[in-house]
Nucleic acid binder design. Structure first.
Length: 424
DNA sequence: TCTCCGATTAGAC
DNA sequence: CTAACGGTCTAATCGGAGA
């Protein structure tokens, strides 16, 4: 193997992404302590710096923040995924202009391969500036020889104002690298979460440096291959490739907590028909069929005083399909099978799995290929894409009120809906 | 005893 | 007024069933 030149991988990460999306269209909120809530206005999923400074924890149920919020006037907004997805696309498009090799890692993060390009610092500032100028989105850039170190570098860029939003790990000397890693708690390392942090501590590993230097065979034996990869990435050996093409989903889930408890079968079926419609739209968008469909129901697990019931039932389909109508009949059937009165349901969902490309599908000779159904689904998708989700519906799909989630504080769809623009 | 498979766990965001 | 706690996805690992 020829010696390979060290990679320069940049991780570009948007700052407080959901909050920033909202502020772009509400400049008056620039310094207001604010948070964005998860679906159903449940938990805090994005915080402004002001809210972080006031001690609002990530993931905290909003009702538990109420006292603090009222004391300090913290603003909470429902999440507006149409807006966030659109802003994300704009940012990613701009970043892809800097390198042909990009991996959109999540809604607010992108790995950009800058290997071989000169003046990485200047280039990184250029990325920040262009994204900021064209979209208003603040981002930080971390550069490293592996994904794990690029992530860590990004963390440094975010946390230390002196970096001005850019940190290049590759530019450090060996001693500088070690002392930096020594300052970073091991939980800041990508792939090391709450549980692993505790287990690692029992083995005397508390910093990123400890992990990098840990005895390899015993680490592997105790923590498995994932941890070993992480360690090797800290040692600057790439173990995780840049994945430029997004791969098809192997499983598609559509589920939601209800705005209030549901006790009636028709309401559950109505909710499920909506979930089926969403899941099948995604399935068809990636040109796949599913061979297994699963439905689950859940009572409210936080209400310990109420009787709990969390059934789940799957059927292997005789013939894999992406037909919303057919899948909805199965979902309905499974729901009836599991439904018991006298329980208050708080959540339900549909899982499509054993997903395979449409092309591999052997239409079986009995029920085979129904071109009319194919056309029906195609028309349904294009109408819904063009005129908005829910223009054409499957089954009751939303006719019954009572299960829809709470979203009382949602901002307008500034970028994706003419109807939401104020008429000046 | 080995292998397979479903369920569980842990992580990310 | 009161109750109020996300959603999707992947990979590894565990543990029992069956060969």
């Amino acid at each position: 193997m020829p010696p390979t030149r060290q990679q320069a991988l940049a991780l570009v990460d948007c700052n407080n992404f959901y909050v920033s999306c909202e502020r772009i269209f509400r400049p008056d909120l620039a310094r207001v302590p604010m948070v964005i809530l998860s679906n159903n206005d449940g938990c805090v999923v994005s915080r402004s710096n002001e809210a972080k400074a006031l001690g609002v924890p990530m993931g905290q149920p909003w009702f538990e923040c109420k006292a603090l919020a009222e004391e300090h006037g913290i603003l909470a907004l429902s999440s507006n995924y149409a807006l966030y997805a659109d802003m994300s696309n704009r940012v990613m498009t701009i970043l892809s202009g800097f390198s042909p090799q990009c991996e959109v890692y999540s809604i607010d993060e992108c790995f950009v391969d800058l290997t071989g390009l000169p003046q990485l610092r200047a280039l990184s500032y250029a990325m920040r500036e262009r994204v900021g100028m064209w979209t208003g989105m603040p981002v930080c850039v971390g550069i490293g020889p592996t994904k794990t170190l690029a992530k860590l570098a990004n963390h440094v860029a975010k946390k230390h104002p002196r970096s001005k939003g850019v940190f290049n790990y590759n530019a450090l000397t060996a001693p500088q690298k070690s002392s930096l890693l020594q300052c970073l708690p091991v939980q800041e390392v990508w792939g090391v979460g709450r549980k692993l942090t505790q287990r690692l501590a029992r083995h005397g590993v508390t910093t990123a440096l400890d992990l990098r230097e840990a005895h390899i065979p015993s680490l592997r034996a105790e923590f498995g291959v994932v941890m070993e990869k992480t360690q090797r990435e800290l040692q600057e050996t790439p173990c995780m490739a840049l994945e430029e093409v997004q791969t098809d989903k192997k499983q598609i889930i559509s589920s939601r907590s209800f705005g209030s408890m549901v006790t009636e079968l028709p309401v559950l079926k109505d909710a499920l028909s909506t979930f089926v419609a969403n899941a099948c739209t995604k399935l068809r968008a990636q040109n796949s069929h599913a061979a297994v469909i699963q439905v689950f129901l859940q009572t409210n697990r936080f209400r310990k005083e109420l009787p709990q019931y969390m059934p789940s039932l799957a059927v292997p389909l005789p013939c894999p399909t992406h037909d919303s109508l057919e899948i909805n009949r199965w979902a309905s059937f499974l729901c009836e099978r599991m439904f018991k009165p006298d329980y208050a349901y708080k959540k339900a969902g549909v899982v499509l799995s054993d997903i395979r490309p449409t092309t591999h599908h052997q239409g079986d000779l009995l029920t085979s290929a129904r071109p009319d159904q194919q056309k029906l689904m195609q028309s349904l998708d294009s109408l819904n894409a063009r005129y908005g989700r829910g223009t054409v519906k499957v089954s009751t799909q939303g006719a019954y009120a009572g299960w829809q989630m709470k979203q009382s504080k949602k901002s307008p769809n500034y970028t994706t809906s003419w109807d939401d623009l104020p008429m000046v």
